[in-house]
Amino acid sequence: MEPRQLRAIMLYEHNLGTSARQTAEKINTAFGQCTIAHSTVSYWFKSFDKGDTSCEDKPRSGRPVVFDEDLLRSHLERHPDATTRDLEKELGYDHSTIIRHLHAMGYHKIMSRWTPHALTDSERAARVTICESLLLQPHRQDFLRSIVTVDESWVHYNNKTRQAYWVLRGERAPTEPKGYWELLDEKQTINATICGEQLEKLAPEIATKRPKRLSVSLLQDNARPHTAKSVRHILEKLNWTVVPHPPYSPDIAPSDYLQIIRTHLGKELVIYDDHTYYCNVTSANGWKKYWRCTRGGGTRCCAARLHLSPDYKVMKIINEHRHPPPRFIVRNGVYTKIG
């Protein structure tokens, strides 16, 4: 018999003036021994005496017995960056139970991807237009061989910590806008004059290293020193072509997202998407094929990997960083970790 039905019988007997012991004996006689205990009837009679005649279960403290995965899923849709401790407080389930159900539902937690700027619709359209024009470039192989990339060295300073998000396996991490601080030599700032001087120094070096190539296609970002009038005049004098570059788009500028550097001990590192990698597999012919994140070993070892071609093109990436990028400075191609 359902508990609600038994409570209705108890309420009926209570209203007739039957004692708790007599009510328990009647119920056990009618429905079988051990159907209900005298203490249970006494508990409900006390509630009836207080004027509470509801036969429903009272709200209980503690954690729910049945796990509601739909509730967890809807909460993650609203707050994908919630920690399991936050979910424990909001939903009332045990921390380990939440983790177990998250993995069973196909979720895993990965770090968001940095983007330098939250693009507007017009900036997104400019990316598409410029990329399409470059794809339609005639004599594409000659054009690609003529590209020279230019960028400044940079350093992470007062890094904003990225958030980790719960996403279904196979989905890409969300992006977060990020700004960079630049650290130059003491009392020196990057400006159009310095940019122009660097280009004029670069021109004879390119002529020496590329004697058979007359054309130069300069690929750089849209920083103000790069687009200043004096710099444009120098580029016209050098007869260099400036490759159009969408605003706030370092992900399609090679100099911005893949750097080959060395530590002070001479060890080669790769910087990709703000994270650093070292080569852990080298083929017999010297091809540095597989690179792994420099995050330490043991249980804290990062699962992110890079697969590079012999000319350092990214062929495959397993981007599962669960930690913020390291803080470091690169000067004259030498990597130094800070903080």
Rank of each mutant, 00 (worst) to 15 (best):
D49L: 14
E2V: 09
H264Q: 12
L199W: 02
R85G: 07
K209W: 12
W154A: 13
I317P: 05
N319S: 13
H245C: 01
M111E: 04
D151A: 01
A20W: 08
K209P: 01
L238N: 05
R210A: 01
D68H: 11
Y248M: 05
H108W: 12
S19Y: 11
R213S: 01
E132W: 11
T149N: 10
Y107V: 00
A223D: 08
W154T: 13
I99H: 14
N319H: 14
L91K: 10
A125G: 09
V155F: 12
A207Q: 08
W287V: 01
Y278H: 13
F48M: 09
R78E: 03
N239K: 14
E132F: 10
L6W: 07
A304T: 07
H14K: 09
N280Q: 06
H14T: 09
V243M: 08
V148R: 09
L184D: 01
P3Q: 01
L269P: 02
E320I: 01
R73W: 03
D274L: 10
R124H: 14
R213M: 00
N158S: 10
T84K: 10
L202M: 08
R331N: 04
T149H: 09
E132L: 13
E13N: 13
E88D: 06
V281M: 14
Y12D: 05
T115H: 08
Y180M: 13
S74R: 11
P247V: 02
R210K: 04
T175I: 04
Y180Q: 10
I318T: 13
Y278D: 06
E13A: 11
I9F: 09
T208A: 15
P59N: 03
K267M: 12
N239R: 15
S249N: 04
K212I: 00
P3I: 01
E268A: 08
H307D: 02
P59A: 04
K316F: 07
